[in-house]
């Protein structure tokens, strides 16, 4: 029974960790209609920022979180209009061109990091790294709890922003119908830049946490891109709320299968879940996807 509870907690926390870099990914798809392959690149960049803040300045890894948001948010803000132009260009299949662009961006980020920072695996030290709390028979790893809380805060914050502010209304309107939103006076170009900046900033913040929980090297980005994509498909592309539910589901499935069936079957179980959900509900787990 102790192991059962521990597994449940492990699963929920794995889900929470995955959710951190998937939520904003969903928002970008909703607004820009782009599947951003570069998501793993932003995660790894955040991780490196965390590492350099700890190793170079001797500060705690958590300090890197707001820095990551500002720095990579600004970079994302500059990249957003390019992506918007490609996505709305008059070429044939602009959605594929945009996908290729983000793939190129991902490759560029990966190669750039490799050249600039080398291939050694780094980790981000934080006040909570390696710390745990015993609650009854269950060991609670605090850094993962911090990541899960971060995911909840970001999801909650985005919810309030999207549903309680005028700008959120403009974002939702754009997601629903770009042309009508533009006719109502929304500056779609600037809005796209803002959303991509918001997304890059949030994802890089999640990256600092990934560096603290796991480790970071220029090659680990692909894994995050894949998981973000799994969760996005399971959640229904574009559904922010669905992303949290889907991430938690995948985490719990992975944990129980790894513990009670065997770790080698965990990816099989994840794919089976994905397949079943797509079969039964192609618009995602909450049926809210596009």
């Amino acid at each position: 029974m102790d192991l059962f509870l521990q597994t449940l907690l492990n699963g929920l926390l794995i889900g929470g960790v995955i959710a951190t870099f998937t939520i904003a990914f969903q928002l970008t798809f909703g607004v820009l209609h782009v599947i951003d392959f570069a998501v793993g690149g932003w995660v790894v960049l955040g991780g490196y920022l965390g590492y350099y803040i700890v190793a170079g300045l001797g500060l705690d890894g958590f300090v890197a979180i707001p820095v990551a948001f500002v720095l990579f948010g600004a970079i994302g803000y500059l990249i957003g209009p390019i992506l918007y132009n490609v996505r709305n260009s008059r070429t044939a299949r602009p959605e594929l061109m945009a996908l290729a662009l983000t793939f190129g961006l991902f490759t560029l980020l990966r190669g750039g990091m490799l050249t600039a920072w080398g291939f050694n695996t780094r980790t981000v030290a934080t006040a909570l790294s390696g710390e745990s709390l015993m609650v009854g028979p269950v060991t609670v790893p605090l850094i993962r709890v911090a990541a899960a809380l971060f995911a909840v805060m970001i999801a909650g914050g985005l919810f309030v922003f999207l549903y309680r502010t005028r700008y959120g209304l403009a974002i939702r309107a754009t997601a629903e119908n770009r042309h009508n939103a533009a006719l109502m006076g929304v500056n779609i170009r600037r809005l796209s830049a803002n959303v991509y900046g918001l997304y890059a900033g949030i994802t890089a913040m999640a990256g600092v946490l990934m560096g603290a929980i796991y480790s970071v090297n220029p090659e680990s980005g692909l894994r995050y891109t894949l998981f973000a994509f799994f969760v996005a498909v399971l959640a229904g592309l574009g559904s922010v709320g669905g992303a949290v539910v889907a991430a938690l589901l995948l985490g719990v499935v992975e944990a129980y299968v790894a513990t009670y069936v065997g770790s080698s079957y965990s990816l099989l179980a994840i794919f089976a879940t994905l397949f079943l959900v797509l079969l039964i509900s192609p618009r995602g787990i909450l049926r809210r996807g596009l």
Partner: peptide, 19 residues
């Protein structure tokens, strides 16, 4: 004796072994 996928999270298997 546990085989883990390279992409997997290690908490489940470490918890199991810790038990």
């Amino acid at each position: 004796y546990e085989l883990v996928p390279p992409e997997g999270d290690l908490t489940p298997v470490i918890s199991k072994i810790a038990a």
